[in-house]
Design a protein around this nucleic acid. Structure first.
Lengths: 152, 152
DNA sequence: ATTGAAAAGAGGTACTA
DNA sequence: TAGTACCTCTTTTCAAT
C-alpha cells in the first residue's frame, strides 16, 4: 500500500486528535465523507493506525516519577535476551523497552507514583530478574515535551 | 476532584482503546449510558484525559530509527534552560524531552526515518543550538515495548 | 450523580457512476 | 476510486430523582 498525500494528511490529523469526525476531515481535505471513511478504514485494516487511545495527564493521575534505566545483562545469548524482553514487558511500570546499540543492553522508561514505588519496583521486580547484571537509573526532574505524534 | 473506582476503571479502559462506545462502557461498569457519558465528559473537562489520539505503526510509516540523546548544556542559568527547552520542543523529531537529575542535563527521544535523517537533524538542528555543549546519542536496535498506558 | 427517553449527529452499507 | 442515499448506532441533551 502506498500512502498518498491525502493519507498522510489524515494520519497527521488523527495523530493529534482522533475524535475529529469524518465530516470534519472531509471538509478539511476537500473530499467526500465516503472517501474519508474508506481511507481511514483501510489505514486501520492495514495496520498503519494501530489503535486509538486516551492520553492522560501524568501528574493529575498521580504518576509523579519517570525514570530511565539502562540495563546490562549477564549474557547475550538469544535465550537470555528473549527471556528478559518477555519478563520485562509484563511489568506495567515499564512503559517503553528498547534493545540498544552501544555500551548497554536495554533502555527502559519507567513510570511510578513516587520514589518509594520506584524503589519497590527495582528491588522486587527488575533487579530480581536472573538475566540482569546491573541497572543504572536516571530520574526525570521535569517533562518538557511528551508526544505520541510521529513527524511524518 | 476525587477519582473513584469507576473513574479509574474508565481511565484504564480508555487508555487501551478510546473507541469503546459509551454503551459498551456502561455495560461493563454496570452503569447507565448517560452516567458514563457524564463521567467521561468531566474527565476530559478537568484535564485527566488530555487528548484522544491515533497511534501509528512506526515501521509502516517509515520512522525506522529511534535514538536517545543525552544533552549537556554550556550553562545552567534559568535563561539557558528555558531557551533550550523552548527551542528543542519545536523540533518534530524530538518526541520526548526531559530535564534530568544526575550527570547530564536533558534526555531526548528522537524519531527519524533513518540514520541519514538523524545525522541531518543533529548537524543542522540540535548541535546548532547555542546552549548545547555536547550530545551523546544511543541508537535503538529493536523496540520490545512501547506503551502510552500509565499503570493506574 | 444517575436515570430513561428523545433529538441530533455520526458511522456504516449498498448502489451508482 | 469517489459520490449519493439510506439505515443504524451512538452521542448528546434534558427533565426529574
Amino acid at each position: 500500500m502506498n500512502l498518498d498525500e491525502t493519507d498522510l494528511k489524515l494520519l497527521r490529523l488523527l495523530q493529534v486528535d482522533a475524535t475529529i469526525s469524518n465530516k470534519e476531515l472531509a471538509h478539511r481535505l476537500h473530499k467526500s465523507i465516503a472517501a474519508i471513511h474508506e481511507r481511514v478504514k483501510k489505514l486501520k485494516a492495514k495496520g498503519y493506525i494501530k489503535k486509538v487511545v486516551a492520553i492522560l495527564d501524568r501528574q493529575k493521575i498521580g504518576m509523579g516519577l519517570i525514570s530511565f534505566s539502562q540495563v546490562f545483562l549477564k549474557a547475550h545469548t538469544a535465550e537470555v535476551l528473549n527471556q528478559f524482553e518477555h519478563d520485562v514487558a509484563k511489568f506495567p511500570e515499564v512503559m517503553e523497552c528498547y534493545q540498544m546499540a552501544g555500551s548497554y543492553d536495554f533502555m527502559l522508561r519507567i513510570a511510578t507514583k513516587d520514589m518509594e514505588a520506584y524503589h519497590e519496583f527495582l528491588r522486587h521486580k527488575l533487579a530480581v530478574l536472573p538475566q540482569v547484571n546491573t541497572v543504572q537509573t536516571y530520574f526525570v526532574l521535569s517533562e518538557t515535551k511528551s508526544e505520541t505524534l510521529y513527524p511524518i
